[in-house]
Design a protein around this nucleic acid. Structure first.
Lengths: 237, 237
DNA sequence: GCAATAGTGTCTTTCAGACACTATATC
DNA sequence: GATATAGTGTCTGAAAGACACTATTGC
């Protein structure tokens, strides 16, 4: 490393944080997109993001952007990957640190109201293990929505990581409300994996893992037999 | 994002790449450290690293640092995690992208000769799953070597990631020469996991996974029955 | 009772661990 | 043949998939 640390010695280089805010809606993974109001890529959809402050940690920047851009107070935040190809932004050299932000769909209620710049785009997910197409965000016409910059690439990384962590980390609970049925948990897993799962085996695995516990309470409002509500154990990882 | 992109508007912020160059030597994971020749942390050991060039991708910076700092031409490089707490470097705000660099021990032959600033430090690895101590690099006196900056933290992340990827990715082969015995492969797995593995089960798993194939050739120079040499299949992941 | 979903019992298959065994090299 | 390691056969137990079954709710 050089001995001198004169700021003028450093090339103009910026660091941003981009959020891959995902939830499961109607049995599908979906991502929050923001329409760009200025060039480049004006009117295209992009992941919400922003510059990292001088005295701000990366995690803190992710939290701030969650609040400022998406109007949300809380989400499961986790650093994903960093993208820094020169030319990924035509204006200047920008290195971006991508973060997951995972939320139950309920937590988004109201956030999108009147926000014409925000959209929750369902994802088209290739068959797991298949080398086929990459992950794509779908527009209202159900056609793939090209994202600004390299955000398609970031989204692809995010879904792959989410899948990889699904069965050894309690990440799926971040996509559910505090009380949830085992069926809802299975729906989340199926949405992320893109495949159907065996019900008895799934229940056994979840209960054996001992991350969750029954509350004794039951679902309400259903037309049929109500399911028990579970919660994540307080001491769980 | 702001509309103006005047470099002077941006805070002095630098992006570096740090390498966690690991290998397995004498049945233990080991990491390449470089002794700092200037303050801060003068004379402490640190991970080799350097600034990212203006027109250089992150991956390219990692390759360049591998060559410049460690004098090596090739390694398995993979981005690990980004660290950007303000204050992690007392001089200025530096965000660093940490990379794995994985190499067979043989590939390091000669690299350390006469390089008193470089050392290959064996790692003391806590029991897997145990919440106990973090990973520590050991000095010649077998005592933990405190690393400069937040490099202990980076090292800890690296070992955890290496462990996590071990059984679903072909990452272990990066730590072996092109031809290797199944026993050597098992040694690598055991060094990373810090536990002994069952021989028949390990062989079955490795052969069933079909990432490797026998060459028909055999080990030489051993005093006892020579083992078959395997190689990674060309079409393997 | 009917419909529809919650939740379980059990058989089968798959795979990992254990352990003893056979095979084959050098000396 | 002795020795030490390579490599295998086989038993057992744990866990997943399949599938049918029972349980419980609103209507």
């Amino acid at each position: 490393m050089p001995g001198a640390y004169n700021p003028a010695d450093f090339p103009p280089l910026a660091v941003t944080v981009d959020l891959v805010l995902m939830t499961v809606a109607d049995g599908r993974l979906a991502v929050l997109l923001q329409r760009r109001s200025a060039p480049p890529h004006k009117d295209d959809w992009a992941l919400p993001g922003g510059f990292v402050g001088v005295a701000e940690s990366l995690d803190a920047a992710a939290e701030r952007i969650l609040t400022e851009k998406a109007g949300l107070l809380y989400a499961w935040l986790e650093q994903l990957y960093s993208f820094g190809d020169p030319g990924r932004d035509p204006r200047m050299r920008i290195v971006t640190i991508a973060y997951f932000a995972l939320l139950p769909h309920e937590a988004l209620a109201g956030t999108l109201d009147g926000r014409h710049d925000l959209a929750l785009a369902p994802l088209d997910i290739p068959w797991p293990g298949e080398q086929g197409g990459p992950v794509a965000a779908l527009g209202p016409d159900r056609r793939p929505l090209p994202l600004a910059f390299d955000h398609d690439d970031i989204l692809d990384h995010a879904v792959k990581r989410l899948r990889g962590k699904l069965d050894y980390s309690p990440i799926a609970f971040a996509l559910l409300p505090p009380r949830f049925t085992l069926r809802a948990l299975q729906d989340v897993h199926e949405a992320i994996l893109g495949i159907g799962l065996n019900k008895p085996a799934f229940r056994r695995r979840m209960l054996d893992r001992a991350w969750i516990e029954g509350t004794g309470e039951r679902e309400e409002g259903g037309a049929f037999r109500p399911a028990e509500l579970y919660r994540v154990k307080p001491e769980a990882p």
